[in-house]
Design a protein around this nucleic acid. Sequence first.
DNA 1: TCTGGGGTCCTAGGACCC
DNA 2: TCTGGGGTCCTAGGACCC
Length: 428
Amino acid sequence: MTRAGRQKFALVDCNNFYASCERVFEPKLEGKAVVVLSNNDGCVVARSNEAKALGIGMGVPYFQVKGLVQKNSVQVKSSNYPLYGDMSSRVMKIIDNYSPIQEIYSIDESFIDLTGLPFNLITHMQSLRGQVKEWTGIPVCVGIGRTKVLAKLANHIAKSYPRFKGVFDIDTLPHQRYCDLLRSVRARKLWGIGRQSSNKLARININSSYDFYRADVGIIETLLGVNGKRVYQELRGHPCIPIELIPPTRQQIVSSRSFGSDLSDFDELKQALTVLTRKAVNKLNSHQLAATTLTVFIYTNPHKKDKPCVHLSKTIGMTTAIQDESQIIPLTAKTLRLIYEPGHSFYKGGIVLGNLTKNYRQQDLFSSTQNEQPQINSDNSSSAMQSINRRFNESLKYASEIGNDRWYPRAEFRSNRYTTSWDELLTV
DNA sequence: TCTGGGGTCCTAGGACCC
DNA sequence: TCTGGGGTCCTAGGACCC
């Protein structure tokens, strides 16, 4: 028996989020098959229901479904992250009004804590759903359960069966019906059971969520480790994964891209990596963090079987944490120089700022301020540069950022940044 | 021709400590 | 001859998520 004060979680998940965002600003897409592509127009990362029905899979390379897309006049969009990010924050703000505790789990998902709320939860969540739709145009579904894994599963059911009108509480099922439901859902669908884990489970004849539910906990832990055990316990109604009220401080910041064209030339690579470094540093500063490691990497295309697959990377450590672009950008160039090998065509590259700490000034034990050239006050010059760039739309650049734009990712089907750029407002 | 980007956590193994 | 036990920290790789 569970103890009194049983918890209650809801997962609010936007339906086909990127595709839905595109529809808000282009209503003629309503009812049509829509797909949204990843950066560089590489893969399909979002599909409307109509596109799913055509058999366009999640994550498939775009070129593989181009024929299908043309034959069925599927509407294609490049991804437009400024737009999705802004729409996301609007949706999240509304959700926040429906519970005292909200965890923003991803760009299109929120967990909220409904424990002890004096409402009919189904009605409460129906009105959330209605308000998000009315105020933002984004359709959402809500799954309710006494653990996060169960709320996730309930959300899957809410999305799959229209008769629930977008809200489903899995705890309302009698035990027998709950077992029937588990039998109809593959274990792979459970939150936390990925491809490798489901393959391992299949080898001992665990295929459905019900098989998983009925399995021995010791076997699950041996096979899948503590994470698998947590999923197992949560599926049985024992909460193991708490709501994260405060987002944990991040441990690393990654900025990487696959390039619009393969790059061999050192200066072209340096240009691309400089721009990516500045993106990462902007993020670092916006979180008020500083980094003590920098990783630079460049890769050749692993899908080209006729050429060697080359992964070049190097991590360097700093004696003091740094957060200034005038320090980090030259380090990227220096590190790239160390790893660069001519003669390869690199299709992707990037940098990682790691071992992040709160941005406070720590003295370098090994540098003496005496007998040293006075340091240029890089702090002031780059903060001036940053404030100019904030005001004038990134108009100041480092010389090493300028060159040709061959590296720039493709985005053939990009919609406007309707909500974040004055030049790109929707005109009616 | 054409295959994303950004994260986290866990585990195993090695180096090192007393 | 006979070679413990317990711990930390770091790193690389794997797995998962959206």
